[in-house]
Design a binder for these strands. Structure first.
Lengths: 133, 133, 133, 133
DNA sequence: GTGGTCTAGACCACG
DNA sequence: GTGGTCTAGACCACT
């Protein structure tokens, strides 16, 4: 899986990494049980410090996305990511709220916004197809 | 309009402030042309640093939400917020993408996600009604 | 509050720090809402690196023991530590189990073991008294 | 005796092994003088590295739980595990202290904690019954 | 001045 | 070779 980082972005590198891995899992490019590069090799692959990757991996582990095995490296959680809890949903709403509020201010209609969400949803999921070919 | 800040949140205070003002405009609680408290009084009202309010106001101005007049103070942009540009939409997608990816990982279906977005959309817009009573 | 670290111990410094803070809270030496030294001052006080303290503080925050405010520093959670959840109890049992098994092997009777637990419990709680004088 | 390892656990495999053997002895499932599988066969049985089993056995020997004879293999110490020394008790207290402190923080009363310890104690000891049936 | 992020380089426990 | 821990020193965002 290819990781693309934007070193100029305001978004911290470790969150970019987290987002890319999550999207990889969402799209099916990363299958449950599939191994991820070791902290060190990932770090050298994408040209960042080992600690930055480590932080990302640990947060992904906390979120239930991956498992970190003692000395055998990192794998996508074989049992799949745990289903959304109430606190996940609450957090999600907190994140969505300001985005939606701005959209409303800028005149986006409900249908338009939903269409945008749909497009992104399908775009992510359709990442699977590359595998299925 | 009542500003509620969460001093424990990870979200910086100035962004919380920005979000609240934007949501106020989206909901109609803040009408175009309506004056906002001066930097100074807002700061003392909500008990934060002048710089913090200043930063929030400047960014809101940059986003086209408010106007800052040297002597006349701060007002919600009387011409309404400029419609979403392509760059706005691109930014919006960047923000939505990781949220949607996580939702997919956690097993949320498209319909479920759209329903969540709809609920928030309507919840914000219906903030208007408080004024209409 | 005095922090005592054993640099020779096998126990990582950051966990020692965590344990000491938790015991401080348990004993009442650290009251809810009471500020803790900043990452930097704690680090220089106890002669370790700032990152080590940072890690300890972040884990304490995760456990609900302290709050880390943006730029105002670190305080003991003013609302008190959240009550034990089922997962807390499960984890506790996992920790106790091998200790108790060894005690049994070494011939400690139930009463003796319970007495040991009681002694420690009371010894920690009675740390309060220093404040009450 | 059945060894169950959790390869995902944070706890090192060799300590898990140690704990299981100790609990086996505590419960009576492993009787004094009873032979344990050789390093080699234990390793292949549970699918771990030879070194890992070796380390566990050596530490168990150090703790007085087992004897390792060059040719005759590994046996549970026929004279029983040596009674707790002062240093054993001191170590035990060091281990219990942070667990108890956390319990106090999370609002567990003395009686509740003691009850938890009792339950575990009896649960381990009653492992004997399986043999007695 | 506060915590957050990132880099660089080292040693250790584990398997 | 793997992740975990620790140190050292730097820059940044926030208030």
């Amino acid at each position: 899986m290819i990781i693309e980082l934007n070193m100029q972005s305001e978004e911290p590198i470790y969150t970019q990494l987290i987002h890319q891995v999550i999207e990889g899992i969402a799209s099916g490019q990363l299958q449950p049980g599939e191994p991820l590069p070791s902290v060190r090799s990932m770090a050298s692959d994408i040209g960042v410090n080992l600690h930055t990757v480590n932080k990302a991996y640990n947060l992904l582990k906390q979120g239930g996305f991956i498992q970190i095995h003692r000395q055998r490296g990192v794998v996508v959680d074989p049992d799949g990511v745990p289903a959304a809890t109430d606190s996940d949903r609450a957090r999600q709403q907190q994140q969505l709220r300001p985005i939606i509020a701005e959209a409303i201010c800028r005149g986006m209609k409900e249908a338009e916004l939903i269409h945008a969400v749909q497009s992104i949803y399908r775009n992510i999921v359709s990442g699977t197809k590359e595998r299925e070919l």
